[in-house]
Amino acid sequence: MRWSTVKGCICLLLGLLMLTGCVKKENPPNPAEKPMEKGIQDVSRYFPVESQLTWDYEGEGNEYAGFTRRVMHTQGNKAQVSEDNGGTVLGMVFEVTSSQVVKTYTKEEFYSDKNLLEEKPNLEEVILKAPLKVGATWKNERDQREVVSTSERVEVPGGTFHNVVKIKITSLEHPPEEGRQFEYYAENTGLILREFTVGEDKITSQLKSLKKTEARPQTQKDTLSIEGMQQEVVLHLVEGAPLPFYTYAPSDMMVERTASGEGEAFRFVANFAGKKRDDAYMSLFFYPQGTSVEEAVKFASGMILSNRWQKVGRYNNPDTEKSYPWSESEWQFMDKVNNQSYVGNIAVGKHGDRVFHIINHYPEDFAEGFVPRTGKILEKFTWTDTGEQLNKT
């Protein structure tokens, strides 16, 4: 090979090496140099408040950990929500926008369907705040909230949820060792899990179901057989929410709702021709969650004794014909006060994990008008969680 040829090859090789040395080497992008994620901008997707939505939560670790939430009223970006844990009912108002969810009003021992949306705010507690991204924090008067994850996978009785937002709640009134709390929110579902831990003890509330019920008509027309004659009557809707029932009552039966730590009661009181008779009523009473049928039977029997009513019959075996197909135990009774004779009955029943009793009490000469009316109330009585009618269970 001639020297000129070798020289040319060497020059070409050196040129290629120089060219290669001038190319900039591409390094993998540094995660620290990535632009900050924007996070979730619309928090309303994680707190739905459509009218008639109902959430049922299964509790563990405490008798009041299970509860039911229901949207009672809505107006604009406001929603009234009731929360019933079996011991008390809480009425709450939320303002929901894309940027934040704020609880603006709360009322304890709230056993009514009254609209609270126009009540003057009595607090400002931010539940969720945009953007929802890991590390985001905000403070309320009593707690601080921090987004610790937006990609949780959570299994609860109501299903498996992905990309769940996990919120850590730290009390500003108590030291951390007194407990840790987390809430988990899923898109288009809302709160699916609440955890509270103290030492080795853990209390959880897990979503069991989310349902939307159709709005029911406020009135219905029907007929009653009174003294052998068919009479047309107007029935008015009675909502039991957050208890899982509704029924319809004749317009001349007043409805009174009361509650205490011992339970919740609905009284249907005769108001014939505009004259209220407190001695003619049907009472529907729900015992606190955890009450057994045996405890309710004992309590109901004690009521008969304390009122000095005279028992005249009792269902206590499967071969005895019952007045109510759903009753676990029932009695008939009679009474006499100031020459006025009274008759009635009391029956104990159970639906799901709630025990209840129904009492009918009325003057004997009211029977032909009173019994058809209370019979219609029980005929229309429907459990909202199963869709079953009481008298057909």
Rank of each mutant, 00 (worst) to 15 (best):
Q41Y: 03
V43R: 00
V43H: 00
S44R: 01
Y46M: 06
V49R: 01
E50G: 14
S51K: 15
Q52H: 15
Q52P: 04
Q52E: 15
W55V: 04
D56G: 03
G61F: 00
G66C: 11
T68I: 14
R70N: 13
R70Q: 10
V71N: 08
V71Y: 07
Q75K: 13
G76N: 09
N77R: 11
K78N: 08
V81I: 15
S82P: 02
S82A: 11
E83C: 12
E83N: 11
N85E: 12
G87L: 03
T88V: 10
V89E: 12
G91W: 12
F94Y: 15
E95G: 03
V96M: 05
T97C: 01
T97G: 02
S98C: 00
Q100N: 13
K103T: 01
T104V: 14
K107P: 00
E108C: 03
Y111K: 04
Y111A: 11
K114T: 14
L116Q: 08
L117P: 03
P121F: 06
P121Y: 06
N122I: 09
L123V: 05
L123N: 06
L128P: 01
K129V: 00
A130N: 03
K133C: 05
K133S: 10
K133N: 10
V134R: 14
G135Y: 11
A136L: 05
W138P: 02
N140Q: 02
D143S: 15
E146I: 06
V148E: 12
S149P: 09
